[in-house]
Simulated assay, not measured.
Amino acid sequence: MTHSLVLPRLIRTGSGSLAEIGKLLACCGVSRPLIVTDPTMVSLGYVGRLTAALAEAGLPCGLFSETEPEPTETSVVAAEAILRAGLDGQAFDGLVALGGGSAIDTAKALAVLGPHGGRMRDYKVPRLVDEPGMPVIAIPTTAGTGSEATRVTVITDPENDEKMLCMGLAFMPVAAILDPDLTLSLPSRVTADTGIDALTHAIEAYVSRKASPFSDQQALAAMRLIAPNLRRAFHDGQDAAAREALLVGACFGGIAFSNASVALVHGMSRPIGAFFHVPHGLSNAMLLPAVTAWSIPAAPTRYADCARAMGLVGEGAGDELANGALLEELRGLNAELGVPTPTGFGIEPARWQQLRPLMAEQALASGSPGNNPRIPTADEIIALYDEVWG
């Protein structure tokens, strides 16, 4: 079996690394970037810090600051209009995404729509978009999605509430800046949801049927960084060491799943987010314990390795003991971090019941469940939705 490995060309890390954006853009051949961000980044002053660093480097820039959470094609079209308008009569030659996964995913969508046109539905899987796209420099301000290091973007189609999974080399950022200072302001709820998202990426990449020796090492490294630091950052947002560990761990998790794919948790999670507007990391967290328990019989050693990497048992512990510890930890983590069930989130029971078959259909259509160690039928996915309802 052969494996293709795809990574950003440059990753700059460390406290204060945002200030080096000018040097990084020069390395990428970008001189007129469009910043893609959201109103929160403006209000926190992060956009001001970014534009000041660009000005110091003598680089003019444009700004789209209306990225919405869980971005839809509608918001992407608004950003595309600014991209096509250009800057002082000249075209933008790159995109700088500042924010969480939504800002980075929006920039990735623009990287393809800009040179190739069309609509996002034209690019969803099973199509692989390997044509050259515009260069994207990703600056994550959450430690979760790993989108700064993945060839994936997810955009919701507002016409049918489908979260469209789009993949290919065109969506891979050319560079990323991992500045933990930008994550210190994260609320505890966002810290929890994005952190469990990153942990899910690492676990699913490790147990994926598409895993490789390269993705295995990235996934295990991600778990070693995330597991002991997520609670620390949740309870003390100013814990700089924990914040940096989570940010680097999330990037490792992104690299892992970008090269090995995610699996059943993500396949089931996307429809929950699209239909009920549950934040992506939170819907992953709702699903992770039940899906893991259902999947363990098909890959007990792989899941046991996850427990060992997370420090839940010693290296010499048997698989059965390790897997019991893993399930106990995932359930305990949800309890400590206040992850609600779907009913606790406020989802209407009748609508959940009604949409389960469609959600199962969309989950299977995404292809992610096919990477799971235990591949489900539509009826088994519906049964898992029933189990997590709570």
Rank of each mutant, 00 (worst) to 15 (best):
L230Q: 03
F257A: 11
S212L: 05
L326Y: 06
L50E: 05
K163D: 00
G89S: 08
M268F: 04
P289K: 08
R374N: 10
Q217A: 15
I381K: 01
K23Q: 15
G118K: 02
V313T: 03
R32L: 05
P376F: 00
G273K: 05
F214A: 15
T301M: 10
G144Y: 03
S102V: 05
L288Y: 02
I255K: 00
P289V: 07
S366Q: 00
A335K: 09
T2A: 13
A103E: 02
E387H: 13
L98W: 06
A205G: 06
K23Y: 12
A383M: 04
G62H: 08
S269A: 15
P213Y: 03
A260I: 08
D193M: 10
Y123F: 10
M359Q: 00
A109E: 01
L287G: 02
R32Y: 06
C251Q: 06
V278W: 02
A79V: 00
F275E: 10
A52K: 14
F214Y: 14
P373N: 02
N334K: 12
P279T: 08
S261A: 13
L87Y: 02
P173G: 13
S102N: 05
A192W: 05
G344Q: 10
R374M: 09
I347G: 10
H277A: 13
G332R: 09
A263F: 06
G86P: 02
D305Y: 01
V125C: 10
L364M: 10
L337P: 01
R356S: 14
P115H: 13
A81L: 11
H280A: 12
A322T: 07
L178D: 10
V6L: 15
L18A: 04
T145Q: 05
P60E: 09
V207M: 11
T72C: 11
E387S: 09
P126M: 14
S366H: 01
D105I: 00
G45Q: 09
M286S: 03
A299T: 08
T292R: 01
P279L: 07
L247A: 09
A222K: 04
S208K: 05
F275A: 12
V248E: 04
E380N: 05
P357M: 13
M359R: 00
V136F: 07
P33N: 05
V76W: 00
L178M: 10
A52S: 14
R119L: 11
T183L: 09
G168I: 01
G249Y: 02
L358E: 15
H116Q: 12
R127A: 08
G146H: 06
A222D: 04
I375P: 12
L95D: 04
V77C: 10
A363E: 00
T2H: 14
L7M: 15
D93I: 05
A293V: 04
M41L: 14
A309F: 03
A233K: 13
I375D: 12
E328K: 11
L10G: 07
Y303F: 14
F276G: 01
E361T: 14
G45S: 07
V248A: 09
G367R: 03
S17V: 06
F214R: 06
L225V: 08
S17A: 15
T72R: 13
K108A: 00
A103Q: 01
T40Y: 06
G367N: 06
V174Y: 00
L358C: 09
Q354R: 10
A107S: 04
T183H: 08
L321N: 12
T72M: 09
R189Y: 09
G99T: 08
D386K: 09
G14C: 07
G117M: 00
M120C: 14
P357W: 11
